[in-house]
Design a protein around this nucleic acid. Structure first.
Lengths: 341, 341
DNA sequence: CTTTAATATGTTCACGTTAACATTGCGCAA
DNA sequence: TTGCGCAATGTTAACGTGAACATATTAAAG
């Protein structure tokens, strides 16, 4: 084990007491004479002194670290969230501690690791398929550590800050866009998960006010059985009432829809306008490029980071739980147009 | 600041001294009576005691953290490297500290952060365009902290472990594959960077022994000027000696080559066999899917982690610097075939 | 030249942990 | 019984730092 350079070494070299050195290097240097400061800083530089964050953390109780349970590798969206939060935390002096689910490390293990590192806050982007995350969040919060969830809400836990998309407004924007283009026969595809339901509600709400007929709704997109989706979508686009405008609760549905449209000889956007949600990479890879609603994922990450930090640094006042939802932006591309007749 | 639960709290609750608790919970429990151990563990559980790694680190000098300067977001290859190293470090009890280059945080800053967190080792995947990385590595190594570079070698620094691809052998494999198919007229495209040069050497070495003619070589692929590449590749594939087999130093050249081949009316693989290197995602997205040489990136990460940990835990013996190169694997796809005549 | 106030520096303690050593208590042999 | 040795537990010091307080030095005012 190689010897560390401590403030005592610097003190000895300069002849000052170690406390003076402490104040100059890591505390309030303005309490000392300029000459003293200069001498001490020079000596520290020469000796290669770097403050020991572990010692500092132990003495002050402040660890300057924040846990992040986000898998930045699932898609580019979570990547951006991670990136935003990471950069914001870093800029504010905090160390983001990324916790990925390895095979071995499971829930219990993760909480222990967070706790033993005395993480001051936790940012979570919950995975829909993972319910252990709720227990983790609850457990961490029980220890008075601020928790913020991003993108997806956390089930169960009260009083957890949330940063995400204004899904309902997104749905409204989609409806308004299609109405503006002059459509009258609408359809929508969703799934029974929270965010998609909100998008559906926004969509339906606007149409209820302004459209002649209510939209045909397919509400049970199947995440595991693609064949079922093919059948259901086909049915939606055939039948007695053929829609001219289709709103998808998520861009991931685009390929299926494009495929069925092609099979049915419906050309996009001439026969069918399609608008997605999320601006995933498929949206601009398909032909024609898909109109969609984009969320600035990076911004979500930044906001999440700001919320945790705010809570971390405001131990006194109790801050009420906040739910921040940012309105997505309409990206007009080539999959939506006025109806042909 | 909320109160921490310490071994002293557990000691008070059980009536034992804090030292006994320390031994039971974080030390050698076998030194104590089974009944004692049981009582203490129960009390710790009830109080929600979790050891404070900061205190432990300060006392023992062991921080259980390893820095990683890898941008896992450039491509799937670095992602896999990161993932492998991350999981291996985690499995061995170390905390990977990911250091990304934010705009603000630059070299000096990074080193400081590594040092103040008392990182015990450093894994670097150097970026070709970033030379600050060499200074960082040198500086960190000067502080006796083991450094391992992955995928790309670090310029300048002596005695740094390296884990990467056996580029030369990869080049040999490519040549052997093409020879086996019966080709006689070869070409190769490379760039003047270390790894590509090694691939070229392996390629040329085998051909020098077994081929009738030496290959036509284009050695200055231009990373910034695509137009220049188009011209150069076109020239390579026309001229007096038209090759029937082409080895690319990197898969990233594939799209350009496919395009030029199409322009020149050369069909792949009938008129021209093309073999790439790296098995990047383009390789199997193109039509026809490209034969290439694949490296198991995850494995590189794991190995890198093992090397750092080994050095961290072997402070006594000096380990000579190691250069581990893993042989890539030939992935036969549809872009290579026997020459048509 | 004092006294006073401000400025500059030094001392002690605490943070939570482990290591090294010290003590206690017990069983067993002399 | 006495002493010995071992097992179980307790005591003290140390890791590097900052806070709180104590002291020394300087400057200003009388």
């Amino acid at each position: 084990m190689k010897k560390q350079i401590t403030i005592r070494d610097v003190a000895e070299k300069t002849g000052y007491s170690f406390q003076t050195v402490s104040r100059v290097l890591n505390g309030n240097a303005s309490l000392h004479k300029a000459a003293t400061v200069r001498k001490i800083e020079k000596a520290a530089e020469e000796l290669g002194y770097v403050q020991n964050l572990f010692a500092k953390a132990m003495q002050s109780g402040k660890t300057w670290s924040v846990g992040m349970i986000i898998d930045p590798f699932i898609d580019s969206f979570t990547k951006e969230i991670f990136r935003g939060a990471h950069d914001e935390l870093t800029a504010r002096g905090y160390l983001p501690i990324l916790l990925l689910h390895s095979k071995d490390a499971h829930d219990e293990e993760l909480v222990k690791r967070l706790a033993s590192r005395r993480v001051e806050g936790l940012i979570i982007r919950p995975y829909p398929d993972m319910d252990g995350i709720n227990r983790i969040a609850a457990e961490v919060q029980r220890q008075q550590i601020p928790v913020v969830s991003v993108d997806y809400t956390l089930a169960g836990s009260k009083n957890i800050d949330f940063v995400g998309t204004a899904d309902e407004q997104g749905g409204q924007l989609a409806a308004e866009h299609l109405l503006e283009l002059g459509h009258q026969k609408f359809a929508g595809i969703f799934a029974p998960v929270e965010s998609l339901s909100l998008r559906r509600e926004g969509f339906e709400k606007v149409l209820a006010r302004q459209a002649i007929r209510p939209p045909k709704i397919l509400n049970d997109w199947n995440f595991s059985d693609e064949a079922a989706n093919l059948v259901a979508v086909k049915e939606l686009l055939q039948g007695n009432e053929v829609p001219t405008a289709l709103f998808l609760g998520g861009d991931f549905m685009l390929p299926t829809v494009y495929r069925i449209a092609h099979e049915l000889n419906l050309s996009i956007p001439e026969d069918l306008s399609v608008i997605g949600f999320g601006d995933m990479s498929v949206a601009h890879q398909l032909v024609p490029c898909a109109t969609t609603l984009r969320q600035d994922a990076c911004q979500l990450g930044i906001q999440a980071a700001q919320l945790v930090v705010e809570r971390i640094e405001n131990t006194k006042r109790t801050i009420p739980s906040r739910q921040l939802r940012f309105e997505p932006q309409l990206i007009r591309r080539d999959s939506t147009a006025a109806p042909s007749k």
